[in-house]
Design a protein around this nucleic acid. Structure first.
Lengths: 190, 190
DNA sequence: TTTTTTACTTATTAGTAAGTAAGTATTATA
DNA sequence: TATAATACTTACTTACTAATAAGTAAAAAA
């Protein structure tokens, strides 16, 4: 495989990931990608015959990203609260780049997705939820974190606060996200 | 004004509201509406010349709805916890009709909206947040509800839990929404 | 009763979408 | 060196989008 193929395919993927987070699946086209790369529309189709193929690969890269993050976090000596804080930082960053989280983006179009992609999205979502739940559970066991719910429920509460917080920040400004972030971390420290 | 005009226009609006919540602004077309009503595409344009006009009216109806809900709630003898519970029920209902909340729907497309609509969305969002914050504040003053954050922050936490909970339920099922709802109400009762 | 307004339909336009078939350089392989 | 695969471009098709102009039947207003 030549270097150029990989480069273009990777760039298509990178641009598509950003578009997914910024505008969502239904709101970007192959020409949005080809124009940014100064190639033709058909060249994108060469690498990803259909938009569904592209979406499947996008979701795959997020699954890989989160697997790496998970193994990084589980082997890290970082305090549980700092791990959650790092997680919250990822969402804060999304606001800066005018994006929303990939799960929220996909949720909007969920019913129009092919079954193969849906299954991957379910996998991704449970991966993220499981990762957060794990950090929470260990943190509570260590006496670092305080919460009354079971770990999955608390993970759900935190993830929904962050994901919708990013969406809301588009409307009412990022100050509201900061209120959410601060309250969240304070709650966990009791 | 004749009866028929109002009927068709109201039906267009009603169908468009449902489509907004189900698939979002970018994913429905005038023909989705005209087909449901057995009228022609141009008839929809007669009532709403542009899609932006339609969107503006959709957001207006939600503003009116929430104003009514607010005045209903503020004059109601219902307990604060029940008011929040009713609010949560509205979100649970969205899952049944395969929809997400209007604010979440609009947030996805926020950057592509005309300024006039953006302003209305900001108004709507602050209306809902203010309403919830009000119920929370009064409930706390009455000794019915317990929370440490300021009322707007707690309203943000609850709204993000519910809004993203509905989105998440599309992916992982409505059981996760029920976990969120239950945890939320339990927290408020201390 | 004439005129005007309302609520459409018919027919069309300009633009964009995803997707494909066929051709062409360049690079790698046999 | 001939062959085959790679990474495209050119050119096109089909389908749909929002939007508009022009015409029409029915109802309301003058």
């Amino acid at each position: 495989m030549s270097a150029k193929t990989t480069d273009t395919k990777q760039e298509i993927l990178s641009i598509a990931r950003n578009l997914m987070k910024k505008v969502g699946y239904n709101a970007f086209s192959y020409s949005d990608i080809s124009k940014q790369l100064n190639i033709k529309n058909a060249a994108v189709h060469y690498h990803y015959p259909t938009k569904e193929d592209l979406l499947a690969d996008i979701v795959n890269t997020y699954i890989e990203d989160y697997k790496k993050l998970e193994s990084g976090l589980s082997s890290s000596a970082m305090k549980a609260i700092d791990k959650i804080s790092v997680f919250a930082d990822r969402y804060a960053h999304l606001i800066e780049i005018q994006s929303i989280c990939i799960i929220g983006s996909v949720a909007s179009d969920f019913y129009t997705l092919p079954e193969a992609v849906k299954a991957k999205v379910v996998l991704l979502t449970n991966l993220v939820l499981g990762m957060v739940a794990n950090v929470l559970e260990k943190g509570r066991a260590n006496g670092e974190l305080f919460f009354e719910e079971d770990a999955r429920t608390k993970a759900l509460l935190i993830m929904t606060n962050l994901a919708a917080g990013v969406q809301l920040a588009r409307i009412t400004g990022k100050k509201d996200f900061e209120r959410i972030r601060t309250a969240l971390l304070k709650q966990l420290k009791q």
